[in-house]
Design a protein around this nucleic acid. Structure first.
Length: 444
RNA sequence: UCGAAGGUAGCUCAAUGGUGGAGCAUUCGGCUGUUAACCGAAGGGUUGCGAGUUCGAGUCUCGCCCUUCGAGCCA
């Protein structure tokens, strides 16, 4: 019977068939120890010369790393190790002999591996990350479904920039001129929220920023819920509840993979409601107390400005300093409006502040969520569009949402790969997605 | 885009301006409990590209290309 390695415990002392690939093989005279991989796990086979036919013995000698095979044998407990199982090999069918495999069980550099991403994904580490990514996305979908959100898929071709700030990838669109690859589904999700109440979009987004850091890729997946009649506070309550659900479910269901990656689970177990909520101004106070300067580039190098001035946005060193004191995600809210996007509603108590919230992951993994309450007043929104010098003709439909039964509404965007990096404790975001797109890499 | 480090065998890395090496991988041989197995042997090189200095350049100088790390921007 064909079984998957992850289910092997249920078949002890039974004869099974495993279909997979040779991960590694060791030999000791009349014994061989092939390590088999089938996508769900690894198992060590034991081939004894006196137990198998001459042909099977010879065929095992021909196998190279990553050769595909169908192996029959008896599942037994490891003679020395607890909860480890082996396959006592009886028969072998070679599906295909692999050419010399470039990725060996030894060390490799990141560039070499990135060039062979299509093969790198076969390694136990990458396989564990992809399984955890799957669990994260699945738990997001289930949370949303169970809480009354409607999946609302937004377009990838768009005629306008959602936020005027970042650069967009462009392409020709028949007779209609340029089209751009979406950098966010938010504006369309707002239309969805006013139609359906609570919606979310989950799909790829694109940013043509020449960002060469361990936290950026040019094509990344984002989950963006949008809720009618939610204010900033409701938004933050949702973020807390949602993040706790996702993190706790992932550590419950993917413990084996997280252990394999060497993830410190005690840090993730602390991700429970409530999360600290601090205002932007309080965050600046933290930076001032720690004497973290704002570093600004000048013609003759760098300028270090102390104390950190109110109104400036935070960079990576600032985020790290703010998060340091907490062991949970930190929600920073009420930002200087000037630095923020045009669609954010102003704080009624202080119009210089926008009702935005950023969520900073613990352990220095940076911003995983950016959200806000949206501007729902028609005249204020028109003002913002003018201030930001955005083409009104492209935003006509968006402005319309304020004409026909406008309501307070809020939402946020969560970067899937940032969350994968955080939960898997990855050094670099390039491992968080099957095929990472970066400014200097579009292959494979 | 800016700053720093780097580019030598298939991979990871050594090599005082003076005959380019090791471990792993590959091929062959040995070994009945191996776990990135081990032991023995063999094959494997336009030192990123181009110019210059020098009797002599992997090593020094200049230009270009590429990679990594950090910064900015952001999810």
């Amino acid at each position: 019977m064909w079984v998957y390695i992850e289910k092997i415990r249920d078949f002890v002392e039974q004869e099974v068939t495993i279909k997979g690939w040779l991960y590694n093989i060791r030999s000791a005279g009349k014994l061989m120890f092939p390590e088999l991989r089938d996508g769900t796990g690894l198992i060590q086979g034991v081939v004894s010369k006196k137990e198998v036919s001459e042909k099977v013995w010879e065929d095992f000698g021909k196998l190279t790393q990553e050769s595909s095979v169908i192996v029959k044998g008896l599942i037994t407990r490891h003679p020395k190790k607890e909860d480890v199982y082996e396959l006592q090999v009886k028969d072998l069918e070679i599906v295909a002999i692999a050419e010399p495999y470039p990725i060996t069980p030894k060390e490799h550099g990141v560039d070499f591996l990135a060039d062979r991403r299509h093969l790198w994904l076969r390694s136990p580490r990458q396989s564990a990350i992809m399984r955890i990514r799957n669990e994260i996305i699945q738990s997001i979908r289930e949370y949303m479904y169970n809480n009354g959100f409607i999946l609302f898929d937004t377009p990838i071709f768009t005629p306008n920039a959602c936020e005027g700030t970042s650069t967009l990838f462009s392409t020709d669109y028949f007779d209609l001129g340029k089209a751009y690859l979406s950098q966010s589904g938010q504006l369309y999700a707002e239309a969805g929220a006013l139609a359906l109440g609570k919606v979310y979009t989950l799909g790829p987004t694109f940013r043509a920023e020449n960002s060469m850091t361990r936290r950026h890729i040019t094509e990344f997946w984002m989950m963006e819920p949008e809720m009618a009649f939610f204010d900033l506070n409701d938004n933050m309550n949702l973020i807390e509840d949602f993040l706790e659900y996702v993190v706790q479910r992932v550590i419950k269901n993917k413990k084996q993979e997280l252990d394999f990656l060497g993830r410190d689970l005690s840090k993730l177990e602390k991700v429970k409601k409530p999360f600290p909520r601090i205002t932007y101004n309080e965050a600046v106070e933290i930076l001032r107390k720690k004497d973290i300067p704002l570093i600004r580039k000048t013609e003759n190098g760098e300028e270090h400005i102390r104390p950190f001035p109110y109104g400036e946005d935070f960079g990576a060193p600032h985020e790290e300093a703010i998060v340091e004191a907490f062991d949970k995600p930190v929600m920073v809210h009420r930002w200087p409006a000037e630095a923020k996007a045009f669609y954010m509603k102003r704080d009624p108590e202080n119009p210089k502040l926008a009702l935005g919230v950023d969520v900073l992951a613990p352990e220095g993994f940076g911003e995983i969520i950016g959200g806000s309450q949206r501007e729902d007043n028609l005249d204020f929104l028109l003002e913002r569009i003018e201030e930001h010098q955005l083409p009104l003709e492209e935003f006509g439909w968006y402005v319309d949402l304020r004409r026909y039964g406008s309501v307070p509404h809020s939402g946020f965007g969560l970067g899937i790969e940032r969350v994968v990096s955080w939960l898997c404790n990855l050094e670099h975001i390039r491992e968080a997605i099957p095929f990472a797109r970066r400014p200097n890499r579009i292959r494979p």
